[in-house]
Design a protein around this nucleic acid. Sequence first.
DNA 1: TCGAATGCCGCAATCGATTGCGTAAAGTCT
DNA 2: AGACTTTACGCAATCGATTGCGGCATTCGA
Lengths: 333, 333
Amino acid sequence: MGARPAVTLKALAGELGLNASTVSRVLNDPKGLDSKWASRDTKERIFALAEERGYRKNPYAASLRTAKSHMIGVVVPRLQDYVLATMYEGIDEAASEHGYFTVVSNSLDAPAAHRAKAEKLLDRRADGLIFGDALFEDPFLDELAKRGVAFTLVSRRSPGHRSVTCDDYTGGRMVAEHLVASGRRTFGLIAGNPRASTSIDRCAGFLDALAEHGLGVDPARMAPGGFDAPAGSLAAEQILAAGPLPEAVFAVNDFAAIGALGVFAREGITVPEDTALVGFNDTPLAGSVGLTTVRSPMHRIGRQGFEMLMDVLDGRDAESIQLPPELIVRTSA
Amino acid sequence: MGARPAVTLKALAGELGLNASTVSRVLNDPKGLDSKWASRDTKERIFALAEERGYRKNPYAASLRTAKSHMIGVVVPRLQDYVLATMYEGIDEAASEHGYFTVVSNSLDAPAAHRAKAEKLLDRRADGLIFGDALFEDPFLDELAKRGVAFTLVSRRSPGHRSVTCDDYTGGRMVAEHLVASGRRTFGLIAGNPRASTSIDRCAGFLDALAEHGLGVDPARMAPGGFDAPAGSLAAEQILAAGPLPEAVFAVNDFAAIGALGVFAREGITVPEDTALVGFNDTPLAGSVGLTTVRSPMHRIGRQGFEMLMDVLDGRDAESIQLPPELIVRTSA
DNA sequence: TCGAATGCCGCAATCGATTGCGTAAAGTCT
DNA sequence: AGACTTTACGCAATCGATTGCGGCATTCGA
């Protein structure tokens, strides 16, 4: 069964003895009671009755006429991922403040779903899109840009498109500097998805900084994979199988780090004594297990991703942004 | 800037030399090419051109006319919560199969937001709602029911409303039986949110089963709180402060359990030697850290929650459902 | 051969809000 | 007093899809 008693603009107007157009103009004027579309008295009557009847404009009718939905679509790899969920909260918060409505979909990092979900959002007439699952090389994004679809990226960047990300390269460098400073000389790298800029940049920063110290990572100890705990466990096993235990392991993501932690515990490897472990993102769980990590401003990335989309929609131009990370030292390294 | 070249029904019809109504009927007829609304030839031309031009119906125009949005709203306490995120995935999956579109919002378990988000969804003309954040006593739900709004509950039940949940009471009993069978005699209980049925039922099952063995939990060692890791840490500290360490601790939620695990590690308490620990839900993290837990069919709860909403919307009646839990024994207990 | 049945499709109203254009009344200015 | 500007609204078209009601043709049975 439906819900609303369906109080329409016309109904209000009828009851007020006014024309719907007048009521519409008054109700929509951002100047509120200072609107010039009716006399003081009329305006007050309109607001009062709208309030009393609980009038809500029908957004479908409005967007049919205006061709704007005030809805934006967000595509993330996985909602269960704390990091993206937090960014989404930031997006949604900013969107609400601007009178926008958001809708999320997850793509499971599968290119087909990435495309399908975005198209579905566009079918629903989203005014713009925000992607949290961009690949570094992403032909679909190029296609959308060509079609003139407004969108921005968060979390992961892709050359040629507007994005808000953490300065992952610098984050990777911080980890390397910290580990080197504490005397570590051999390393394992749980590298994440090699097609995502988060992985690429964090690894690059890490490796570049190590190289400046004349150090490096044995390729057999660089394990790519996903961003969740099981993937981290797998990667850790791979590193252990590659020979002697490295003095430190950098996982480009906290969940992967925690997965590795589980493997270490099972193997009787103590952290940080036998090997140091560093994650990335500073999720709450990292705090709970004492994981040293790099804090990325997830919520803010989301907010700015939305603001940037607003700029695009309003025809202002906008530059990609990289927000500074912060090293959080706990007990694991 | 927008996106679509805006190929409308009328445009298609014009190009085909047909009337928009004919095109509409053919395109919407579930019988597809067997529709009786046009000649075979005409039908083929319609489908071909629609395909070629990439026609997508404007859902706003359609729902304006039909007063159905084919959109349902979902309210969860927190998107970052793996459990609810998974249920949402189940909901969304089932919804897609039925041609429905879903929108999520989070309420942070705050009654004001619970209400506000739901109203916002209704303003957007959702055909129905699914709540994952119901309180055991929830006046807002009663109000919605009275208003005739169609909704169902997932994860948490509330007497008098339709819900799909895990059989939490039985799950709680399983934990108690398992711990008692392995010789534990004193217990701590990380009880979660006392206004949520998940907490209430799991605790009740746990306590009832213990009572049948002549056992119980010291009230000072029953710590309520939230469902995340920090809340679990807090609760664990509270239990430790209550005196001698109990032989086992049951956390009604995996995240809380992991938070507790962090505190135990910090205090040098080993698991399961010094104390056993059991969680609830069987999130992937539980597997990674070897946590014994109760598996609840989260994804399926979501799916069924949606199916049940369909029943309500279609005027069929539906009974609340409780899905069976499964004890997953790992190393922590 | 005529009326009825059926097949195929168009007309026009409708959903609710928005907006360009128009207008009557009141106020301002010279 | 006449001309001009505001103020305060209303009319009617519009957005795109849906749908009740008909209408015109062809076919079939009698």
